[in-house]
Simulated scan of single mutants.
Amino acid sequence: MFQVLFNPFRDLIFDEHFCFLSGDLTNETMTVFPEWLMDHFKFGNERIEMMDKAKSYNYEDLKLPCSTRVKDAFDDLDLKIQAAYKDGFEGMAALDDELLFQWTGRMVYGLLYYEMLYERDRLLKQGEEFVLSANLKERFSHFHLMLQSVIEPISFIGKKPWSIVVFPLKYSADIFSYRDDAINLMFSFGVNGFGFVACLQDNGVIEEKQQVILEKMKGHIMHPVQFEELYARFHYSDYILQYKPEYKIENHDNGITIEVEANGKQPVFGFWDEDIYAQLLSNYWSVYGIEREEILKPQKPLLSFLENPYTKDFVDPESISLPF
Rank of each mutant, 00 (worst) to 15 (best):
L136D: 14
I213F: 05
A182L: 00
Y178L: 12
T257I: 08
S149P: 08
N203M: 12
Y59V: 03
D273P: 03
L281N: 03
K160M: 15
A93D: 15
S304Q: 10
I48K: 02
W162A: 00
L169S: 00
L132S: 05
E207T: 10
F196H: 03
T257G: 01
I295Y: 09
D97L: 14
Y284L: 14
Y171K: 11
G195W: 06
L95M: 15
Q148N: 05
S22F: 08
S237E: 13
Y171E: 13
N45I: 07
H40N: 10
S133T: 15
E49K: 09
F41A: 03
S172R: 14
Y118D: 14
F269V: 04
M92V: 15
Y231V: 11
E119S: 11
V260Y: 04
I151T: 13
F41K: 05
A83F: 02
P317G: 09
E138C: 01
V197M: 04
L12T: 06
R106Q: 09
M50Y: 00
E16Y: 07
V225S: 02
P317Y: 02
F74N: 02
K42W: 01
C199Y: 00
Y236P: 06
Y243R: 05
P323A: 01
P8H: 09
L99V: 05
D97C: 13
F234E: 03
D11I: 12
Q148G: 01
Y247M: 02
F324E: 11
A182G: 01
R120D: 09
P224C: 12
E293Y: 06
D174R: 13
M116I: 10
P168T: 03
K55E: 08
R10W: 03
F234Y: 12
K86S: 15
E28G: 00
V131Q: 06
A84M: 13
E16P: 03
E207A: 13
V268I: 13
R106I: 06
G204L: 11
F269E: 06
H220W: 12
N263W: 02
A173D: 14
V197F: 02
D61H: 11
K218Q: 15
T311M: 12
P8L: 12
G289P: 02
P301Y: 09
K86H: 14
S149T: 10
S188V: 10
V225Y: 01
N251I: 04
S155K: 15
Y236R: 00
R120W: 03
F14E: 11
V205P: 00
H235R: 10
K209S: 07
F269R: 02
E215T: 14
S172L: 14
L136A: 10
N7E: 12
E259Y: 03
L12A: 07
V166A: 05
Q210L: 15
P8S: 11
G270H: 05
E294G: 12
L123I: 08
L200F: 04
G23W: 12
E215H: 09
